[in-house]
Design a protein around this nucleic acid. Sequence first.
DNA 1: CGCCTACTTGAGTCGAGTCAAGAACCGTGG
DNA 2: CCACGGTTCTTGACTCGACTCAAGTAGGCG
Lengths: 237, 237
Amino acid sequence: MSIACSTCAARNSPLCSVFDDEEIKVFYDSALTLSIPAGGYLLHEEDKVKHVYNVSSGTLSLERLTSDGARQIMAFVYAGDFVGITSGISYSVSGRALTSVSACQWHLKDLECLYVQFPKLEERIYEIASRVVAAMMDQLFVLGRKKAIEKITWFLLFIETKQNRVDGNNGAFKLPMTRVDIADYLGLTVETVSRVFTKLREAELIALPQAWTVRILDRERLRSVGGYRGASSGRKG
Amino acid sequence: MSIACSTCAARNSPLCSVFDDEEIKVFYDSALTLSIPAGGYLLHEEDKVKHVYNVSSGTLSLERLTSDGARQIMAFVYAGDFVGITSGISYSVSGRALTSVSACQWHLKDLECLYVQFPKLEERIYEIASRVVAAMMDQLFVLGRKKAIEKITWFLLFIETKQNRVDGNNGAFKLPMTRVDIADYLGLTVETVSRVFTKLREAELIALPQAWTVRILDRERLRSVGGYRGASSGRKG
DNA sequence: CGCCTACTTGAGTCGAGTCAAGAACCGTGG
DNA sequence: CCACGGTTCTTGACTCGACTCAAGTAGGCG
């Protein structure tokens, strides 16, 4: 097993976990490893689709812009998450690094060769696409039918699980995204996001030791505000 | 080629078009054909995932309910559309027939056997999943970042293409869904939907010969309402 | 013709957006 | 170490778009 993979946070990700320690050597050898500084782009929405990616560390946002500058963030992408489920000739989202990011990159042509060698890989990528659909349905539901405070509480519980998967659970978790990013993910304005954070803090449902660090004080009440359906319950899908 | 397929509106759908006239006999023989009356359900969100479907005629809504009765419609499904991209043990949406619907049903186990016989089928289903992701991104964008009038104009132009694919383009198109359905798709209320329809009619951008029939009178202006957000509506109002 | 459902319209309210200002934080350089 | 400038976050006052509540109208069907 290559050293790079044996210590990688994505080793147990949906993508890489399909390979055993022998097989993953082949998989890793056909990849390019990329490093992107915070604020850089993994891909642009107008780029021709030539590669897929699996994030090894850091956090990205997948986002789309309008001509007049409005932005919608479609997803926050963490270590172990796959990027490249797309149809058509261009990605239709840009991948912006919120922190410094490292990722493995495969050329689509190489991936197709790997499909022949490892049929279960293709199957696995289909599973990943299904999960993406499930996650987007949850987000659709929240955007369409929830109030600001419900959106934020849902978001906090959702990001907590993603962040803890990387950092481990030490009682608090870091938000790698700004308030503006949160607003653009939830279809709100930055002022509304800020006001709701303040409200939740004053109600002692959460604590904010720093602006970008959240400690959940009363999980039950927080859940009841957001109507959160646990991420690992298998309910999503 | 089976008679059923040779006259089916879904013969050229992403799913069925992967087969030639000989092959599709095998595919069709392993299917069950279903008929669902308007108002009936193709599947319920809590059902265990055992089947996939391809719609032959009619229109469905894929929707999710909250405990308090709120509803979010995730998609409108037309003839030729595939249903069953899901992850986890249950579908997470219900499929409700807006009109009478006919569909082909395959058992997941049978589908896996067909994958062995027709590897390109599995590939095709992945492509369908990718398209679903793309469509949901568009919807997310609209729900998160557009005003009521922009949502409706986008919706009308979107449904027109789906409807014309089935009915052909005769200048007007039918809405198989109620105003409530439209509201639950776009994250609005029925009153707001109704008011926007009236507004578009009074501005002579559309005509409504019947409540459920739409004729687009000024496509360019309609497009400009949904796309650009000019003088009447800036970035967030 | 009358019932039921869907759609429309009006009046009033409220949640979230807009505009504007100030506070906290961060990195940089003296 | 602190001063400075830029960025992000917070807060306040006000506005407005969409929701709520409440009638009333139009279609479809028995």
